[in-house]
Design a protein around this nucleic acid. Structure first.
Lengths: 110, 110
DNA sequence: CTAGTATACTTCGCCTCGCGAAGTATCGAG
DNA sequence: CTCGATACTTCGCGAGGCGAAGTATACTAG
């Protein structure tokens, strides 16, 4: 739907935002975002999981495997303290950035 | 100022927007954007020119070298017909994208 | 005259990110 | 028992922004 490059800076923020709502596993995060964007955001599994691994490595989120019988194994992720800081900072940055861009492209007569 | 990845999808649009205001040379575009963003956007020369070359190759813009004595040589770029289409489409896409992201990260309770 | 700064453009190679493709595995419905 | 949905993994590509280094000219201060 949206070009790959456009998404390049905001995927992390989108995922982190979802995790602010409580613990979620990967697949759930993807579906959640597709839904809450009104179907506009199509999430590629490879993208989704690679971001999750990356963020866990950086200590922004923490995954915990849950295996119940009668269910598939799932890894539930929660935000860490550091993750909460990051999401706040990234949200701030995004707001400033999008505001700036809208301003600049809106009326571009010097 | 802003993370590199955040910018990855919107640099072209920003530059194209400036060119909607008439012909401009590279350096001028950079300074213009730094100014019109209130100093928030710092443009790297390598980024700027590589985008310009890319866009010219794609036929979105057309460059013309101007050499007057008493002045440095400059390449002035103007939008092509195709470029006008592209800027319209990209602006539309950006608006939809930024609206979507703001919506999703704003209130992220399922 | 010269040193420094702003202007103006060029080229090269790195790093990161999103993506496509292919694969593994389990569960429920028909 | 097959099909589709669920759930996760791994690999390698291509593109975009950036840092660094370089070229060259005009203007200003000393």
């Amino acid at each position: 739907m949206f070009s790959a490059d456009l998404k390049k800076g905001s995927m992390e923020l989108l995922i982190l935002s979802v995790l602010e709502g409580g613990k979620r596993h990967g697949y759930e995060i993807g579906k959640h975002l597709e839904h809450s964007s009104g179907g506009q955001l199509e999430f590629r599994v490879s993208t989704l999981y690679s971001i999750l691994y990356r963020m866990e490595e950086r200590g922004w989120i923490k995954g915990r495997w849950v295996e119940k019988k009668g269910e598939r194994r799932r890894c539930y992720y929660t935000l860490t303290a550091k993750g909460r800081e990051v999401v706040a900072r990234q949200r701030q940055e995004w707001k400033a950035f999008s505001t700036m861009v809208n301003q600049v492209i809106g009326v571009s007569h010097a």
